[in-house]
């Protein structure tokens, strides 16, 4: 029996070493960067007047029905992002100050939702825009569990539901990839542009009016970066607006390092299989000879 156990332990150590080396190499999992032609939006909370025109425009451009579930049923008044609402204006109120807040998909640089999705139903398409493809979606809703901003919504009221989220107006027939919300905003509180330009613009505003803003462009690095950028009024930290403090690490980084470490090239599982099969085979042979049934 001693030989068997030694063989097993050796094999396991070998498999372990493979895993360990995998983990260390995977820790250097390359940081994702926004593609060169990435587009995005910049929302400046100090400019927004809360008129919600963008909410209406978004519904029109996306052909979304009104959400009349609140009140007397006469109002399109969604209480949050939902399967009928890809874009919403919220209001933060606290200590004598208030701020509007626009919520929609952030089009993360390294999106959690994409890492989650089994068949690549969620995908980073041209310009770095994150879109959903129904022909691959199982409706598992792991994307909803994974997204740190609570963005993907689901048609819970349907027997055959779809996942609904802002796709940067990618599917707009007349003007694909031209955000209707940015087009319509009467005070240019939310603007559209290339990611690089928007970042420059956001920083320019910060430098010009340091007293007016929180000293940070949300999305430059947060959670690995987002293609939708935010500026908030001085004294109103971003987490009050519903943008969690994620740190610079991409949300999928930890899971991916571990999974890639274990499954890199499928070496560790294959090694483990070989060891297991070998040990079982020897044990059974020994048992058939009537020895080593027990040890």
């Amino acid at each position: 029996m001693a030989t068997n156990r030694r063989a097993l332990l050796k094999g396991m150590a070998a498999a372990g070493a493979v895993v360990a080396s995998g983990v260390t190499t995977a820790e250097a999992r390359a940081r994702k960067r926004a593609p060169a032609d990435a587009i995005g939006m910049l929302y400046d909370a100090t400019l927004c007047i809360g008129c919600k025109t963008c909410v209406v425009a978004c519904k029109q451009a996306n052909g979304l029905p009104p959400d009349t579930s609140r009140g007397d049923g006469l109002w399109d008044a969604p209480d949050d992002l939902n399967s009928k609402t890809k874009n919403i204006i919220k209001l933060y109120k606290g200590e004598g100050r208030q701020s509007f807040m626009k919520a929609q998909c952030m089009h993360c640089v390294d999106p959690s939702c994409i890492n989650a999705c089994m068949m690549g139903s969620l995908e980073k398409r041209e310009y770095g825009v994150v879109t959903w493809h129904g022909e691959r979606c199982t409706g598992c809703r792991y994307c909803g569990v994974a997204c740190p901003y609570g963005i993907p919504t689901y048609e819970y009221d349907k027997a055959f539901p779809a996942v609904v989220k802002c796709e940067m107006c990618a599917q707009r027939k007349d003007k694909p990839f031209k955000p209707a919300c940015c087009e319509i905003c009467p005070v240019k509180a939310v603007i559209f542009g290339t990611y690089a330009d928007l970042l420059v613009e956001a920083k320019r505003r910060l430098a010009e009016h340091p007293d007016r803003y929180e000293p940070k462009v949300f999305g430059e690095t947060d959670g690995g970066g987002t293609q939708v950028l935010y500026l908030s009024a001085a004294g109103i930290p971003f987490d009050k607006l519903g943008l969690p403090d994620l740190g610079p690490e991409p949300v999928p980084q930890l899971q991916q390092s571990i999974q890639h470490g274990i499954y890199q090239g499928f070496i560790a599982p294959a090694a483990l299989f070989a060891v297991l099969a070998g040990v079982i085979w020897r044990n059974r042979k020994a048992a058939a000879r009537g020895e080593g049934v027990d040890s």
């Binding site: 890492n115 089994m118 690549g120 598992c140 999974q259």
Partner: peptide
Amino acid sequence: LIPIRPSWWNLNSALLE
């Protein structure tokens, strides 16, 4: 479709595994 469409597999997905 999962077992029959390996070309769609997202190998980063723990749920796929």
